[in-house]
């Protein structure tokens, strides 16, 4: 069995669910089996949201094996091939799913939790978060996705597609870029900007190079 497991993490309102849906719809388009549980965290904002994206391909001899039929939606501990975090603290909170080969792509700009706002907790410096990830995997990068989107497109609307570009460049996604882009075209408005965002993500991956970088864009 070949698996490829991606965890997407962030906070309510950032588009975690949309990003997961894009990655899954691309699998349907490409004929790859996919599943994965979502944690939505209510209708409101600010809470942690995750989407598990699990791809798998059964070998022919496994097709009838009753031990390989059920397909659970949860990535087991240490099982993620990739973690995409739209907020650095949420990347840190996802450490348990990482292993030494995990590719980690995280936004570098923090979103302040209420406890920090009210002065009852402190937000760790992003350099520390970077080091925690490096204790597990050398293949992490913290990137200014929001800054890049704002700079090039004037809004945060392209953040998710930039992340997709990075994911396609740094990981071994079992779905081809064409399937991803076709899905983006079908599901999101403004395809020209999105195609450009995807390419921008791939370029940022070049500078991130699979190693940890401090804020890629200020």
């Amino acid at each position: 069995m070949r698996r490829y497991d991606i965890l997407i993490a962030g906070i309510g309102g950032q588009g975690v669910i949309t990003l997961g849906t894009l990655l899954k719809l691309a699998a349907i388009r490409a004929g790859v089996e996919v599943t994965g549980a979502e944690r939505r965290g209510g209708a409101q904002r600010e809470g942690r949201v995750t989407s598990h994206v699990r791809y798998r391909t059964l070998e022919p001899e496994e097709a009838e094996n009753p031990r390989r039929q059920a397909f659970s939606g949860l990535i087991p501990r240490g099982g993620a091939h990739m973690v995409i975090a739209l907020e650095p603290l949420e990347a840190a909170r996802s450490l348990a799913l990482m292993n030494p080969d995990t590719v980690v792509i995280s936004e570098v700009a923090p979103r302040t939790p209420t406890a920090v706002r009210l002065g009852s907790a402190e937000y760790p410096p992003v350099e520390r978060i970077r080091d925690w990830i490096a204790e597990v995997t050398p293949r992490g990068c913290l990137v200014g996705l929001e800054a890049a989107s704002r700079e090039r497109f004037g809004s945060l609307r392209q953040v998710n597609v930039i992340a997709l570009g990075l994911a396609s460049a740094l990981g071994q996604l079992p779905v081809p870029d064409e399937a991803l882009l076709e899905t983006v075209r079908e599901r999101l408005p403004g395809f020209d900007a999105n195609r450009e965002a995807f390419v921008l993500g791939r370029e940022l991956a070049g500078t991130a190079g699979g190693s940890i970088v401090s804020p890629a864009t200020k």
Partner: peptide, 25 residues
């Protein structure tokens, strides 16, 4: 290798402020 991540999480969890939901703007 599968436990490396959860061990790291245990080491640093105390430094991660909780994130509670909030009313929308």
């Amino acid at each position: 290798d599968r436990r490396r991540g959860s061990e790291a999480l245990e080491r640093h969890r105390a430094e991660m402020p909780p994130r509670q939901g909030a009313f929308c703007p």
